[in-house]
């Protein structure tokens, strides 16, 4: 069984937000909401500054706090690909998963259930990349099986320096940022 992950090269990303718009279109994300977004991090003192631009989303963690806190099992891990998903018809909207997510990846859909990035499982299961990855004009995003040593994502994580978001939270996120 695959264990999908995403690798994003922050040295190539220009923050154009194409990934954000592609996601909103592909997944009919309601207006005023977003499942992925751009974070810009500036460090240093002028004029010695360094900037990292990241396309952020649900990290589909290996140890997801949003899944363990869910009282109905609506928040769950899909056995194929280890996607962290929400079953809308079982979600009561208690919002515990939103409070438990250190990344702010979840929100309440206007229809009354919790929504977030699905890693475009519906596309991945048909052999396609997630919408955000497929439209990136700088080709800075990579998607693949982390358990497959031959995959592009595994190769990048072997050969490049990378970091994940808030590793101390112990969530074991699966979106990696090359730096």
């Amino acid at each position: 069984m695959a264990r999908y992950g995403m690798v994003i090269d922050t040295r190539k990303c220009v923050g154009c937000m194409d990934c954000v718009v592609a996601c909103q279109t592909e997944n009919s994300v309601p207006q005023g909401y977003c499942r992925d977004w751009i974070t810009t991090e500036v460090r240093g003192e002028f004029p010695s500054l360094t900037m990292e631009i990241r396309s952020e989303r649900c990290n589909h963690c290996d140890n997801p706090p949003c899944v363990s806190c869910c009282p109905t099992g609506a928040s769950h891990v899909e056995p194929d690909g280890r996607f962290v998903h929400v079953t809308a018809s079982r979600c009561i909207g208690c919002k515990a998963c939103i409070a438990s997510c250190p990344y702010g990846a979840r929100f309440v859909h206007p229809d009354g259930y919790v929504d977030k990035c699905t890693f475009c499982a519906h596309r991945v299961r048909q052999g396609q990349d997630p919408a955000c990855v497929s439209v990136c004009p700088t080709r800075c995003m990579y998607f693949g099986d982390l358990d497959d040593p031959q995959s592009k994502v595994s190769e990048l994580l072997r050969t490049r320096r990378w970091h994940v978001l808030l590793p101390d939270a112990g969530t074991k996120p699966r979106v990696y940022y090359l730096s």
């Binding site: 974070t39 952020e56 939103i98």
Partner: peptide
């Protein structure tokens, strides 16, 4: 200095 800006604007978050 560490300055973080985000384009995320989800209600309640």
């Amino acid at each position: 200095m560490l300055e973080i800006t985000t384009t995320r604007h989800n209600p309640l978050i």
